[in-house]
């Protein structure tokens, strides 16, 4: 290890090489360590997007919190959505530390969300019109999220890895919650089964999109290569999507649902799933904030944020008074 004094005397290029050595040795980078701007910016983009996705992700499920059918389901979905908010908080705290040297804070994250500069996951731009959607979200959207988050547990940025560890533990409860919701409907009346199948049909494309495009051919742009170079992630989008198919297609069929893609099949020879690609142009539109519910959800978040501005102002005042 170089001591501080020697490190400060290095050229930018030498610092960068030293940093990449650490990455290649699988060392964890901490908030106060030197890091290239490129890395910092990649982290801010990744983590603030992840954090705000958790928070925006609370909204489609929130719709079903008061409506959850029984006392037990009401308690469970409240706890689940609360966890998502909690994940958002953990992640935004990590992002805030990274943004500090750039003179930015949580208010900037919020205003970037409202102006659509900060994107959030495609799935949270979609409508969730029935209780069946709440079940599919908890089972499959959370299932997909567990896969991509587990993949990042070993990420090179220490604070992110530690937040993910806790998030993944809670997500595994969510998957059980989702499975329980789905099974109740799948074992229920014809109407309940149909509600579930309709929800799966509605969510299928969004679920495939969730993992992102295979390569930049589909959308003209991807950050995957950079994120792999910096060991922020270890798998490609397509690898994750294939894992998702392997884990969930048999389960979906087992409970009597149909995968809404007639072309989907497992090819033994190449050991891969073949499937109908979703419309990647639509994906681009959705994540740019032009999805079916993008405006409604951003407006809901923005109006409630502005509506409670006086509270945050008052708290700021209390804080100053104490100091």
């Amino acid at each position: 290890m170089l001591d501080h004094l020697t490190f400060d005397q290095l050229s930018e290029e030498q610092k960068y090489d030293h940093f990449m050595d650490r990455i290649n040795r699988d060392e964890k980078i901490e908030a106060d360590d030197w890091m290239p701007d490129d890395y910092r910016i990649a982290l801010i983009r990744l983590i603030s997007m992840h954090g705000i996705s958790e928070i925006m992700g609370a909204l489609p499920e929130k719709e079903w919190v008061p409506k959850a059918p029984t006392l037990h389901r009401k308690l469970a979905i409240m706890a689940k959505v609360q966890d998502e908010m909690g994940h958002g908080q953990l992640l935004l705290r990590v992002a805030e530390d990274l943004m500090k040297p750039l003179g930015k804070n949580r208010d900037n994250i919020m205003s970037d969300l409202f102006t659509k500069r900060l994107k959030f996951h495609n799935v949270f731009h979609m409508a969730s019109p029935t209780w069946g959607d709440a079940a599919i979200i908890a089972w499959l959207v959370d299932g997909a999220a567990i896969m991509s988050q587990t993949m990042m547990l070993d990420t090179s940025y220490g604070p992110y890895g530690r937040a993910l560890k806790r998030i993944c533990q809670e997500e595994s409860f969510h998957a059980k919650h989702g499975e329980s919701l789905v099974l109740s409907l799948a074992e229920g009346t014809d109407r309940q089964k149909q509600m579930l199948q309709d929800a799966l049909n509605r969510w299928w494309d969004a679920l495939l999109m969730f993992f992102g495009p295979k390569s930049k051919q589909e959308t003209g742009h991807t950050n995957v290569d950079k994120n792999i170079k910096y060991k922020l992630r270890t798998k490609t989008n397509e690898q994750l999507r294939q894992e998702f198919f392997t884990k969930y297609i048999p389960k979906i069929e087992l409970i009597g649902l149909k995968v809404p893609d007639k072309t989907v099949r497992f090819d033994e020879e190449s050991n891969t799933w073949h499937y109908q690609d979703p419309d990647w142009n639509e994906f681009k539109q959705i994540v740019s904030g032009n999805g079916p519910k993008s405006d409604d959800r951003i407006r809901l978040r923005q109006s409630s944020y502005e509506n409670t501005e006086w509270v945050r102002e008052a708290l700021g005042h209390v804080k100053t008074a104490v100091v």
């Binding site: 928070i55 929130k62 908080q89």
Partner: peptide
Amino acid sequence: SEWLGLAPHIEEDV
């Protein structure tokens, strides 16, 4: 429960 996701700050929401 109707407040969920809309509280003055994220910490309060939790």
